[in-house]
Computed example of a mutant assay.
Amino acid sequence: MTVQNETATHGVKMTEAASAKAKALFDQEGRDDLALRIAVQPGGCAGLKYQLFFDDRTLDGDLTVDFNGVNLVVDRMSAPYVEGASIDFLDTIEQQGFSIDNPNATGSCACGDSFN
């Protein structure tokens, strides 16, 4: 996993594979106004769960970092929960999709959908 940029604004890193995949999906949609947003919401059996989605909104207090033309946005309430996390994109026979490696997660549920 090769990590591209690090920044002090929200502390989340994105690999080159993740930014390339997000950029390809933006291009496929024909949209240049979208950002990739990571948020933490209450839920799941471990207490908190990630939301990773394309967003065209700007919220007050958003923290934004550009990774090769892809804006990665974190809202200010989620930022402490994802500080130091890394977003990657996997495309193997075993897994396909975006993954989040978060050193702040002290535990997770058996299905891997939530953390605490």
Rank of each mutant, 00 (worst) to 15 (best):
S78I: 04
D101Q: 06
I93M: 12
S99Q: 13
V82T: 11
Q96A: 01
T106C: 04
I100R: 11
Q96P: 05
E83M: 03
S78W: 00
D75M: 10
I93G: 10
T92N: 12
D91E: 12
P103E: 06
P103G: 00
A85D: 01
F89L: 10
G97D: 09
E83W: 04
I93Y: 10
G84Y: 08
G107C: 10
A85C: 06
P103R: 01
D88P: 11
Q96G: 03
P80F: 05
E94P: 03
E83F: 11
F98N: 04
Q95R: 15
E94Q: 15
P103D: 11
Q95C: 14
M77L: 03
N104I: 08
Y81S: 02
G107A: 12
S99M: 11
G97P: 08
D75A: 14
D91L: 06
Q95W: 15
I100H: 04
V82G: 01
V82R: 04
Y81M: 12
S86G: 03
F98C: 10
S99Y: 00
G84N: 11
R76H: 13
G97N: 13
D101K: 13
Y81K: 04
T92F: 12
G84S: 11
D75E: 15
I100T: 09
Q95E: 15
A105T: 07
S99P: 03
Y81W: 13
T92V: 12
T106H: 11
A105I: 03
G84L: 05
T92R: 13
S86K: 07
S99C: 08
D75Q: 14
F89K: 02
G97E: 07
A105H: 04
S86V: 12
A105R: 04
G84W: 02
D88G: 09
F98I: 02
G97I: 10
D88H: 15
V82A: 00
Y81E: 08
V82H: 06
G97Q: 07
A105W: 00
R76A: 14
A85R: 04
A85P: 05
Q96R: 01
F89H: 05
S78R: 02
G97R: 08
A79F: 01
A105S: 03
A79W: 10
M77S: 09
M77N: 13
P103Y: 00
G84V: 02
S78C: 07
L90A: 14
S99E: 03
E94M: 14
M77E: 09
G107Y: 05
D91A: 07
A79R: 06
N104C: 08
G97S: 10
P103A: 08
G97F: 10
Y81N: 02
T92A: 08
I87H: 03
Q95I: 14
T106Y: 05
Y81C: 00
F89S: 10
Q96N: 10
S99F: 00
F98H: 09
V74G: 00
D88Y: 15
F89C: 05
F98W: 03
F89A: 00
